[in-house]
């Protein structure tokens, strides 16, 4: 057997092995999360190494406890979900609204200072959030907005806006200019072109960016910690989970149920959005 043959055969088997290894490494932690969330805590302490749940052990009490409000003796995750959802939705809507015109202008129109603005958008995208956090903390403390969800939405703009501008700009520049030009020849004004041609074509991209923004805001931790820590009724799911995990009194299995509650929406959205992303951006242009 020559070297080529040996390598080909070895690599074929190695590839299967490596794929299996990667799947194990990425999926087992999530599976473990799910398994622990439906086991009673006593069973976990007796048999910590199990990756399976005997059907008799299966319990959903953990979920009931994590979702019940604090008054009913639960952990109040229902409120956290509402808070997280509201903040993430508002931040997404706001950053799309603000990002779209700017991204369109930078990707399409020639104007004075375009290159500088474009460079600024990129620089802002790379800037660390911990540096931005301090003055925002100062401003919000002074204005008495700390602990308000509306304030948090404004702060989240600093996280979602740069990414949105950057992504939208890239997507928009893949739409052929000729489509807009033909609309202009047909007598459409600039706004008409944007509304009737560019926005519909960019719809998949806008949806993808919206999903991405929502995920950023839903997953965010540092700003929630800085701004909401004194107000348990305003906690987001991320913040609530991490603060409850610091205490000893809440069983780990209940917190695992909380982790599932925190992770599930994002993972579902991601799987829904993956299809959206692959649909191809200019694909619709030829058809329609």
């Amino acid at each position: 057997m020559d070297r080529d043959r040996i390598e080909t055969v070895t690599l074929r088997w190695l590839r299967r092995l490596v794929v299996a290894g990667f799947l194990a490494v990425t999926l087992v932690p999530f599976w473990y999360m799910l398994v622990l969330s439906v086991r009673p805590i006593e069973r976990l302490l007796l048999d910590p190494g199990s990756l399976l749940v005997p059907l008799g052990e299966l319990t959903v009490d953990t979920y009931a406890e994590v979702l019940r409000s604090v008054d009913d003796g639960g952990q109040g995750f229902g409120t956290f979900i509402r808070n997280s959802g509201l903040v993430a939705l508002a931040a997404t809507a706001l950053s799309l609204l603000v990002a779209l015109p700017g991204a369109y202008a930078v990707s399409r129109l020639r104007f004075f200072g375009r290159r500088q603005v474009s460079a600024l958008f990129l620089a802002v995208y790379l800037f660390p959030s911990i540096v931005v956090a301090i003055p925002l903390f100062v401003v919000f403390t002074r204005a008495g907005l700390r602990g308000s969800l509306g304030g948090l939405v404004l702060v989240y703009l600093s996280q979602t806006l740069p990414v949105s501008v950057y992504m939208l700009k890239n997507y928009l520049s893949t739409i052929p200019v000729s489509l807009e030009e033909s609309a202009a020849i047909d007598g459409a004004g600039r706004l008409g072109i944007i509304r009737r041609v560019s926005l519909p074509l960019a719809a998949p991209a806008i949806a993808a960016v919206a999903l991405y923004d929502f995920m950023i805001a839903w997953n965010e931790y540092l700003f929630a910690l800085l701004f909401l820590v004194d107000r348990p009724d305003r906690w987001t799911v991320s913040l609530g989970l991490s603060l409850l995990a610091d205490g000893v009194e809440v069983p780990k299995t209940v917190l695992m149920a909380g982790s599932v509650v925190l992770t599930l929406p994002v993972v579902l959205l991601f799987f829904a959005g993956e299809r959206l992303l692959t649909e191809g951006l200019t694909g619709g242009a030829e058809k329609g």
Binding site: T26, P29, Y32, M33, N219, Y221, L239, L255, T263, F270
Partner: peptide, 13 residues
């Protein structure tokens, strides 16, 4: 998945 999942949840796991 590791990239999209919330950092609080995966760190806790």
């Amino acid at each position: 998945l590791p990239y999209v999942a919330p950092v609080v949840a995966v760190a806790f796991v």
